[in-house]
């Protein structure tokens, strides 16, 4: 648990007040995306999202909302604002492997006769 805030060195009361004022009073808590891992060695998969004010709360909420039925051994919570996504318009050129780049695939390469396992 983090330590309680006092007026921190370097930030005057006026700055803190301005920061507090910038937050909507009863506005949204920030959005977090939740990723869960179901077993050893499996990748973390997107499970959904939730609202929380900080990491500790996000982790606890994620556990209650997405992991209470078991089947989860690890959780990641990420502020939604921290995620950068490719855009829909990128889909063609951004992802298109191009038929001309077969050298990235194993079938491109012939194994010598008689070699069983490669």
């Amino acid at each position: 648990m983090t330590s309680p805030g006092h007026a921190a060195a370097g930030l005057g009361a006026a700055d803190l007040a301005a920061q507090a004022a910038a937050l909507p009073v009863d506005g949204q808590w920030p959005l977090w995306e939740v990723f869960t891992q179901s077993e050893q060695g499996a990748p973390h998969e997107h499970a959904g999202s939730l609202h929380a004010v900080d990491e500790e709360q996000a982790l606890q909420n994620a556990r209650d909302v997405y992991a209470r039925r078991g089947g989860v051994i690890s959780l990641w919570v990420v502020p939604a604002a921290a995620i950068t996504a490719s855009s829909a318009g990128d889909s063609g050129p951004f992802f298109d492997p191009g038929a001309a780049k077969a050298y990235r695939h194993p079938q491109f390469y012939k194994a010598p006769r008689g070699v069983r396992v490669l």
């Binding site: 983090t2 805030g5 921190a8 920061q19 009863d26 709360q57």
Partner: peptide, 24 residues
């Protein structure tokens, strides 16, 4: 619930402010 939601937001803002100044 409004006072609870506000309190949580205020706490988080204070924590961010104090950790920003520590990092600076």
């Amino acid at each position: 619930g409004a006072w609870v939601r506000e309190a949580a937001s205020a706490y988080a803002a204070k924590q961010r402010a104090s950790s920003t100044s520590v990092a600076a």
